[in-house]
Design a protein around this nucleic acid. Structure first.
Lengths: 336, 336
DNA sequence: ATGAAAGCGCTAACAT
DNA sequence: ATGTTAGCGCTTTCAT
């Protein structure tokens, strides 16, 4: 069961290693038809498979990319990964995944491990806390594409959904259903372009329909503390008729919150979420959501990265925007 | 930005490559305290990181394992993967994932790619259609552990849940809630131990409570055709009061089916599922399920595999059983 | 206690 | 059109 190597096929074919290597790498220009055929035969006979490790050592290419995400387990994330992985496999690349669990320190460490591993490139949904490092890496020639997140301070090739339009359309739908007091639930958004865009979409839709933007209706949620008491204040004080969440984590927490407070959706209040939910149509109230094309995001990100790897010289940064689509279900009531 | 290599630290430390290599591999036995310190310093100074590819070429060890699953995207699977991945990363292993989408041919190909990649071992949730190949690989010395599935015809180290007890406890719960006519929805189970065990658990519980086992109440579902007309026949003819599904895919399809037929859970019929469902408590009817410890399954599988890799000689096969737990929610009605 | 040297399996510049 | 040769960066046997 000794594995057969290039020298074995060279010997058996009566040629040198180099010729076999030429063959393997598709450089047939100066090769006689005869030897080409012979080598082909011998390779099949011997069932020879080149050792990618030896190849990597020589070429400094591993044909693997690194992928840094928050948590592979998420409904959104796992589908994006599938898109990336499928595209990569089709193109003879492997992917190695690192989970950061939202920790910038782990993110940083993941980058350095991936570099140590000599991956050919990295796709990252970054926290925004390592922008300086990321910039450095890019300047050093590392191929990187970012997805899902966007930061004004970081000039990097990116693929994400058209959040602004997505939020605009959703808000418009709410308005056209008669809602005027629409509360927005978002994470801190001023420093994060991809969050700010959603808020902009919301505001623009209001403005376009001559509804005054009320900052008090924008509730800042954060992952560690969740929905706090001041949210109840918002509800009490402003009585919004609809709640628009900017992230599935918020949607889910909100739904639990409302269930606990015994507030009925959509009878008492309408809910519209960003990001598709698993088993959405089996929920107590099937939730209307702005859906992102997760699989396509992954595919595009992978496509862009492999392109960058193949064109290392090119320092240009690109931004790819994929459309969202509104999936209308039963969580928004028509009013008036 | 040239990367520093072993020779650089050797030179700077005034020793030979071999000595540095000894240091790197923790063989300090014959090393003077002095050189040890010096090498340590220089490595830190130079920020030297050994190249794992060169190392792999020499040692024939990649410190990566392959993982073959049906679809990374599943709720169950992604959590298992996380368990595997966390354990591996903690132990300096990387994991490369292959999705088979339930296709035995892709499964087979994945195995061969993984072998070509020189992974140190493989974790597989296998289809059962490549058992001969798997057996061969094991005989050739490949380290493999199987998870989630079990086949009598394949002697292989395996980690899975205690399906029999899980199904037993669930059935018992149903019986104690007054149910006597409990239909079982399963895939073809006679050739697959891990499915047969669930059926056995169900039957044993019935027997223990002196309820006759009626084969007609066992409905054979399959992934490609889904729930067919004959299921309605079963419902009509035998009027089961409870439905016990053996897999989350079946549960989800069943729930959709019942919703479509306007059959209410649990008022018209009780439902109990195998495998946890996402957002379970937000469902129209929160479903009672037999939950598997997905993360732990992953951890255990990884632990077992890394152990096997470290003890290549040992040909013994082990079977690790993890307990299930019943999560009682609102989908099962007490009757009589 | 440390070093010299061979070699892991391949690629690629250069020679012929 | 094909072969020779020198590495890629490391580990490991064998000397010393």
């Amino acid at each position: 069961m000794k594995s057969v190597k290039i020298i074995d096929v060279a010997n058996k074919a009566g040629v040198s290693k180099s010729t076999v290597s030429q063959y393997l790498n598709g450089r047939y220009e100066y090769m006689s038809k005869a030897t080409k055929q012979k080598i082909k035969r011998v390779i099949e006979d011997l069932n020879y498979i080149p050792n990618p490790i030896a190849r990597s050592l020589k070429t400094d290419k591993t044909n693997t990319i690194g992928l840094i995400v928050r948590d592979i387990t998420g409904y959104f994330t796992s589908s994006v990964i599938r898109g990336i992985d499928d595209y990569c496999k089709q193109n003879n690349y492997n992917v190695i995944i690192y989970n950061t669990d939202y920790d910038p320190a782990i993110e940083k460490k993941s980058i350095s491990i991936l570099k140590m591993l000599r991956v050919d490139g990295i796709i990252i949904a970054s926290s925004g806390h390592n922008n300086k490092l990321l910039k450095e890496e890019i300047n050093n020639g590392t191929s990187i594409v970012q997805m899902h997140m966007e930061y004004d301070s970081l000039d990097i090739s990116t693929v994400l959904s058209d959040y602004k339009t997505g939020a605009y359309e959703a808000t418009k739908y709410l308005i056209e259903s008669g809602h005027k007091k629409i509360a927005l639930l978002t994470q801190e958004y001023k420093s994060v372009r991809s969050r700010y865009d959603r808020v902009l979409g919301y505001e623009n839709a209001l403005i376009a329909h001559e509804i005054e933007v009320n900052e008090d209706l924008i509730y800042i949620w954060n992952r560690s503390s969740g929905i706090e008491n001041n949210f109840e204040d918002l509800l009490d004080k402003y009585s919004p008729t609809a709640l628009f969440t900017m992230h599935s984590s918020i949607t889910i927490e909100l739904l639990n919150y409302l269930a606990e407070k015994n507030i009925k959706v959509p009878d008492d209040i309408s809910v519209l979420g960003f990001d598709e939910l698993p088993l959405a149509n089996l929920l107590k109230t099937p939730i209307t959501v702005v859906n992102q094309s997760t699989y396509e995001i992954g595919q595009k990100a992978a496509e862009l990265l492999l392109w960058k790897i193949a064109h290392k010289g090119n320092k240009q940064t690109e931004k790819i925007l994929l459309p969202c689509n509104l999936i209308i279900r039963k969580s928004c009531k028509k009013i008036n």
